[in-house]
């Protein structure tokens, strides 16, 4: 049987350990956006954030044989990003540019331990993955309802559609997710959705 890097995590990990670029590409693309946001939420500007991540992924690639699980890789990436950001700020402080970043640090975000920060970002990733799989209008409805917390009427007003359409799209979205997901994931969804 042919194994698929995208769905077979064990295979992905094996290939990664062997230094296969295709596996590395998947791990890169899966983690890159959340790490960018992670750094930005700490107050790192886009450009230095990109640089940091670039260095970090190179390091990960160098040490590919040392990792045994995707969780291990994820932990390494987050923790190292945090350390890179802290070092970056130390340097900035020395350059007397502290004020610029002071505002960003005021956010409650920086008071969370790194474990909670990782949970937050991984949750965002999950929400984005789940909703991103939906067809267009359906996606908009789900997003407005569940992420922005609008009522069906508000969603209807905003998208200029009938309230009934909102309910239809919501039902469609749920059944779409049901079809799209793998059996185990579906089971998992069933636990939540209580059809």
């Amino acid at each position: 049987m042919k194994r698929d890097l995208h769905t077979d995590e064990q295979f992905l990990m094996e290939q990664f350990k062997r230094g296969e670029t295709a596996a590395f590409e998947i791990i890169f693309k899966r983690n890159y956006p959340a790490l960018c946001l992670f750094l930005q939420k700490m107050g790192v500007d886009t450009f230095p954030a990109e640089e940091m991540l670039n260095d970090l992924f190179l390091k990960l690639w160098d040490k590919c044989a040392d990792f045994d699980s995707l969780e291990g890789i994820r932990g390494f990436l987050y923790i190292s990003s945090k350390n890179a950001a802290l070092n970056h700020f130390d340097k900035l402080k020395r350059l007397q540019k502290r004020e610029e970043h002071y505002l960003a640090q005021q956010d409650q975000w920086t008071s969370f331990p790194v474990q909670q920060q990782i949970i937050y970002l991984e949750t965002l990733k999950t929400i984005e993955q789940v909703i991103g799989q939906l067809p267009d209008q359906c996606q908009q409805v789900m997003q407005l309802m569940f992420i922005e917390g609008l009522t069906p009427q508000e969603v209807a007003d905003q998208l200029n559609i009938a309230r009934g359409t909102v309910y239809n799209q919501k039902a469609r979205g749920l059944s779409f997710l049901k079809e799209k997901l793998s059996p185990e994931q579906f089971l998992f969804l069933l636990l939540f959705f209580d059809f």
């Binding site: 890169f28 890159y32 956006p33 959340a34 929400i127 984005e128 992420i147």
Partner: peptide, 13 residues
């Protein structure tokens, strides 16, 4: 979430 979507992993890759 919007900001997360805007991160360009493909471009960076």
């Amino acid at each position: 979430l919007q900001q997360l979507k805007q991160q360009d992993a493909d471009g960076a890759w």
